[in-house]
Amino acid sequence: MRTELTSEERAVYEWQLWVDDFGEKGQLALRNASVLVSRCGGLGGPVAYELAAAGVGKLILAHEGNVEYSDLNRQLLMTQDWVGKPRIESAKRRLQELNPRLEVEAHNVNVNEENAAELVGAADLIIDCAPMFEERFAMNRQAVLQRKPIIECAMYDLEASITTIIPGQTPCLACVVPSVPPAWERQFPVIGAVSGAVGCMAVMEAVKVLAGFGKPLLGRMIHFDLRSASFSEFQIERDSDCAVCGSL
């Protein structure tokens, strides 16, 4: 564990070291943290990029498959010259161009029931950016079992939602969404700036939780609709019968 910033880190992070309640202590907390981001597409790409910029020490990325043209409206870590090649390689290259101090553990695989325990176990915090509810449920289950904070963010069309889960303290994903929604489809409309907007909010939740300041979205969900530029905040409740966290 690092106890001091290098002179290069002080120079790079100078402007955020001025942030009240964050400072050098917060920066060191980020430097010593590992964050799992699954996946690193339209939502996870901006998440990973902002985490890299903020100075998180290690990113664990899980994202299977090759770059496609239809990724490029929102998956900011992918480049057109990389179409047909692994997304995870493009993501790692772009992140380390921005932050060469960053350690990236890149997995060309999506989170599933078999690998979730190990991937979650290697991280201090998880940001759930996955499209498939099966992946989201697998990460949520492991986050609860291992008592790791997990930030749930999602987007659709011009809408997005976000909440921060501390197992045993707040509702978990399964408290709010107990089963795969029948209306959900793998491909859906979205403009990249919408996923970028909620991705940036997710990173601020991660920064606050890791550095221990501010007021994270605990037991609260923000939903916004950029079609009307309207934001709503809702109180969300733990389900005492939740199959995942009900016994905590």
């Binding site: 996946r39 597409g41 339209g42 939502l43 996870g44 759930d128 950016c129 996955a130 499209p131 498939m132 509810f133 989201r136 963010c153 999602a154 987007m155 659709y156 809408e159 997005a160 939602s161 408290c175 709010v176 969404v177 107990p178 929604p181 209306a183 959900w184 793998r186 491909q187 859906f188 979205v190 996923s195 969900m221 939903h223 709503s232 809702f234 109180q235 969300i236 409740e237 389900d239 019968d241």
Partner: peptide, 25 residues
């Protein structure tokens, strides 16, 4: 949030927000 399984009475002027869960991608 309406607690799962409950069916509260909505009074005049209530606002009901119906959210279909969304994800990433």
């Amino acid at each position: 949030q309406v607690p799962r399984g409950s069916d509260p009475v909505l009074e005049n002027g209530a606002q009901l927000t119906i959210m279909t869960p969304i994800s990433g991608g």
